[in-house]
């Protein structure tokens, strides 16, 4: 997908609690957290469980399987992106949702069907490695 990039995406200020997530992305792993007390899986990373407040949380590697919850097809330029491109929110198999881009298929309403199964892929962009998602099955 390198040919679609104008330049690097905007670089966020990295917070310490998210370091494991971004380091793991470089290794091709999608990391989530789970509460040791109530087993709630959550994202973005926090040093406690947002469901029950317990501080005992563990990091674990997600399956990378997800479904397409909602999206828009942006026609607005943004750093690191060439319009039109999909900005999506996906629902991970473990429960949490996250924002991403959908790659490996046309950026059209015909190809992007809500609830379609997706699989995570990792792409280096600038100094970051981003978790993106592609269709798990062939698209029309």
């Amino acid at each position: 997908m390198a040919e679609t990039q104008q330049d690097a995406p905007a670089q966020p200020l990295l917070i310490p609690e998210a370091e494991d997530f971004w380091q793991a992305a470089r290794r091709g792993q999608l990391r989530l957290q789970r509460c040791s007390a109530c087993e709630h899986a959550f994202f973005p990373p926090r040093p406690f469980c947002p469901a029950c407040g317990d501080r005992r949380v563990e990091n674990f590697t997600a399956t990378g399987r997800a479904t397409l919850y909602s999206y828009i097809i942006s026609h607005i330029p943004a750093p690191g992106h060439t319009p039109p491109y999909a900005i999506a929110v996906v629902e991970l198999e473990e429960g949490p949702r996250m924002m991403t881009n959908i790659v490996g298929c046309p950026q059209t309403p015909q190809a992007l069907r809500l609830d379609m199964p997706l699989q995570v892929v990792f792409q280096a962009r600038g100094d970051m490695t981003l978790p993106l998602f592609e269709p798990a099955e062939p698209t029309p």
Binding site: P9, P12, Y71, I72, I76, G80, H81, I87, V89, M99
Partner: peptide, 24 residues
């Protein structure tokens, strides 16, 4: 959270954020 986990995917202004739930 938005700066960390939305901005890198191009969701930088209201037209690409506020609109996201609409298709669902």
């Amino acid at each position: 959270f938005s700066q960390q986990f939305e901005v890198p995917f191009g969701a930088t202004i209201p037209p690409t954020k506020f609109t996201l739930p609409a298709l669902r």
